[in-house]
Design a protein around this nucleic acid. Structure first.
Lengths: 209, 209
DNA sequence: AACTGTGAAGTTTTTCACAGCC
DNA sequence: GGCTGTGAAAAACTTCACAGTT
């Protein structure tokens, strides 16, 4: 969801679909394809072709009538729109099982993100390293974020500490938070939060079983 | 999203919010609270109170005028609606860093799910154990799922194998899949899939930075 | 012939606002 | 006075369908 108070002509729901398109296009490119159509993309994603055309048209005419969309060009354009035509430095707070898995995950790089620092308060973790990063105590968080101008963070601490960590991150300058803790965060209007809670997804499906 | 072809009077978007309500209510209960209101809940979640009332009213009058909602009663009702007033047996396919973190995650139990088997094809993993489960080769998947009547699975294998694993799961009887692989799955209309790809969430936020 | 981009139509979702109840 | 449940209104979103381009 958009930070409330931000006015934009592009619906947030559209912004949410762009990364999905980007992922599918990247895959098509890997398969060696050069051109695709709204119809093909829609088929792969389970989205109507009209929706894809309408979404993309909001940002300009990326396609060619009669031909479709040139994949690598469209990828480039979408990356630019989403501002992932660069690499964002990201900090990770919480290096338990989950945080460790996140730190090891190879899927961030090449898609716009690079974890540059990891924080945890457990005395037996501080000073040890994970993926070439020395785990730092949470007290250092503020300085690191502020000095490096970091805008993106991931929270992988227990629910009980998540709000506190979020507050520290925001005060230090972070404006986008990916929260793995199963709790809603209260944040100012100009800070964006996204949530990952596998149980929410599972519970959403059992209704239909 | 609903499996297409399924007709239901309840919008899927509402079903998607119920687990969020349930999570917030559980937290309120932990804080020792007994009663809440649509207004309070909405404030915590960043959702309008009218929306919460409308959503809940679709399932019956859970609240009391002038008073609000009795928390433990509402929790019970929501669990029933979402069918998480029981424990679903779940299988996990893929025990790399991510799968291992998923296996260790303590948040499934008490929220309706229990991982009962883990599969992987790496020879150095098969036969070893994770969280009291012996990792089994993927060839055993079909039998285990079919014999135990398992309906829910989580996929944590590389993108390249995810579709293949999904096909096997579905053939064995699985009807709900939580897919951690960064790829869209093609499944029949009566199978539900939910996706977890942290990068999609991050990319959605950078647009606004 | 194939496909995009797009107004217009249709559908879904959200919000409003208030009657009714505690 | 405070709160729910709910029709009605408003807003948002999706699909239709076709003119226009390659």
């Amino acid at each position: 969801m958009p930070a409330s108070g931000v006015t934009s002509s592009i619906p947030d729901i559209v912004i949410g679909r762009l990364p999905v398109y980007l992922r599918a296009l990247t895959r098509l490119a890997q398969e060696g394809r050069e051109v695709t159509s709204s119809h093909e993309l829609g088929e792969r994603l389970g989205i109507s072709s009209a929706q894809i055309r309408k979404d993309l048209s909001l940002f300009g005419g990326f396609g060619k009538q009669g031909t479709g969309y040139h994949i690598s060009y469209l990828i480039e354009q979408l990356k630019q729109v989403l501002k992932v035509d660069r690499e964002w430095d990201v900090v990770l707070v919480g290096v338990g099982d989950l945080g460790r898995a996140v730190a090891h995950y190879k899927g961030f790089i090449n898609r716009g993100f690079r974890i540059v620092a990891a924080f945890d308060n457990a005395p037996d973790k501080v000073g040890t390293s994970v993926e070439d990063m020395t785990i730092q105590p949470v007290e250092k968080l503020r300085d690191v974020v502020a000095e490096r101008g970091i805008k993106v963070a991931m929270i992988a601490v227990p629910a009980a500490s998540a709000q506190e960590v979020a507050d520290m991150l925001i005060e230090a300058g972070v404006r986008a938070i990916l929260n793995y803790a199963p709790i809603n965060l209260n944040v100012p209007d100009d800070v964006h939060v996204q949530y990952i809670d596998p149980v929410l997804h599972l519970q959403r499906m059992t209704y239909y079983l």
